[in-house]
């Protein structure tokens, strides 16, 4: 898995949590109901379908 800086991680998890809270389908099995927790769990498992476009 690609290594993200903490800033990138916060942006990805934040965006993903917002998507989940707005009704996007979740990609893992979880007992949690908090969008942010689900997003973090997805991120830790490398399941978040979001990447970072870096300037070269």
């Amino acid at each position: 898995m690609q290594q993200y800086t903490r800033y990138e991680k916060s942006r990805i998890v934040g965006a993903r949590a917002l998507q989940i809270s707005m009704g996007a389908p979740i990609l893992i099995q979880t007992t949690s109901i908090d969008p942010l927790e689900i997003a973090l769990e997805e991120f830790d498992k490398g399941m978040v379908p979001i990447t970072v476009k870096r300037k070269k």
């Binding site: 917002l18 998507q19 989940i20 707005m22 009704g23 996007a24 389908p25």
Partner: peptide, 14 residues
């Protein structure tokens, strides 16, 4: 043939 930016709402991402 046209080009545009399209907003896909999160609840339809699946």
């Amino acid at each position: 043939t046209m080009e545009d930016k399209v907003r896909v709402p999160p609840n339809r991402l699946g």
